[in-house]
């Protein structure tokens, strides 16, 4: 269909996102992403366990700073991500279409994703007020419980919702001060990498979100077993895989959050309870005296 005089388009190289950089997988492997008709769309990095290990190091390194950032700042940054995404609206629609989503649905999905980011940006300085408590203990002490981020969260995001499913999991984790390592949708990985570019342009500190592409089958065990990961989120693993995630996660008492059967386009897929999933309750006591 190209005319003789048409310009040759420049194709994008989709690389993974670790510690605020876009390296290729250290393994040098790739897999082909094809459109529904079988045409090659892109070479996708087939991330390895070492990539995952590097990503966890980056996430751990970013945790102290991000978790100590003020709620106001985190809210500002979430909002900035939404702004950046809105600005690249058409690109994301095009990528979704390229991966087989209808134009109408793609447009809706990008809209919903921007709105979801705005939704969580608004929660940044409020979920704490909803879920914390002052506890009236029966002694001369001031006692209060607050939420603190669980730590480094590994995420196996939905396969069938390449952008909205991705962001619906990342946003509540990072708005709560966690850092994360995400394994993008295997069948629709493009938006995840483009979203990394959005993050990169949105004042999100390096290492707060790290995004890998690759094979579920190869990486799920790593995501569940890594001893320096504090929580693992999974969204569409079959029963057998879910069971193995629970078993692997037990070794360092990782929190396991199952979001199987969530309808990502639905309003029920957003709530402060999603933020709370990757929070710990800390209770502090102090005497009251002169």
């Amino acid at each position: 269909m190209a005319e003789a005089s048409a310009r040759v388009p420049v194709e994008k190289t989709y690389k993974i996102y670790i510690g605020g950089k876009f390296p290729r997988t250290e393994s040098g492997r790739y897999f082909l992403l094809q459109d529904p008709k079988g045409a090659v769309i892109a070479n996708i990095c087939r991330g390895s366990r070492k990539d995952f290990r590097n990503a966890v190091v980056a996430a751990r390194g970013a945790f102290a700073g991000w978790s100590a950032a003020t709620a106001y700042l985190r809210g500002q940054i979430l909002y900035r991500i939404a702004e950046m995404l809105e600005g690249r609206h058409d690109q994301f629609v095009a990528e979704l279409v390229l991966q087989g989503v209808s134009k109408r649905k793609a447009k809706k999905e990008v809209d919903a994703t921007v709105d979801r980011l705005i939704y969580y940006a608004g929660w940044a300085d409020k979920y704490q007020q909803v879920f914390s408590s002052v506890n009236p203990v029966n002694s001369s002490h001031f006692n209060f419980s607050v939420l603190e981020p669980t730590g480094v969260v590994s995420m196996l995001v939905p396969d069938d919702s390449g952008l909205l499913g991705l962001v619906s999991n990342i946003a509540p984790a990072i708005v709560g001060g966690n850092t994360c390592v995400v394994l993008a949708s295997e069948s629709m990985p493009l938006c995840a990498i483009s979203f990394a570019e959005v993050l990169h342009a949105s004042d999100v500190p390096a290492g707060v979100v790290n995004i890998l592409t690759g094979f579920r089958e190869e990486l799920t065990t790593q995501f569940a077993s890594h001893m320096d990961v504090n929580a693992v989120v999974f969204c569409d693993s079959e029963v057998g895989v879910a069971k193995s995630i629970h078993i692997e996660a037990a070794d360092n008492m990782k929190r396991v959050i199952s979001r199987v059967d969530t309808r990502w386009t639905d309003d029920s897929a957003q709530s402060p309870y999603f933020v709370r999933d990757t929070q710990e309750t800390k209770t502090t006591w102090h005497p009251i005296g002169g």
Binding site: S133, N135, P136, V137, N138, S139, H141, N143, S145, T150, N230, N252, M253, E280, T281, K282, T283, T284, W285, H286, P287
Partner: peptide, 21 residues
């Protein structure tokens, strides 16, 4: 999960208890 500042080993029914990691 529980931090005692200038006190230790205090418990109360209203006070959540439990661990990280």
């Amino acid at each position: 999960g529980v931090i005692w500042a200038n006190t230790f080993n205090k418990f109360d029914p209203t006070s959540p208890f439990g661990g990280y990691k």
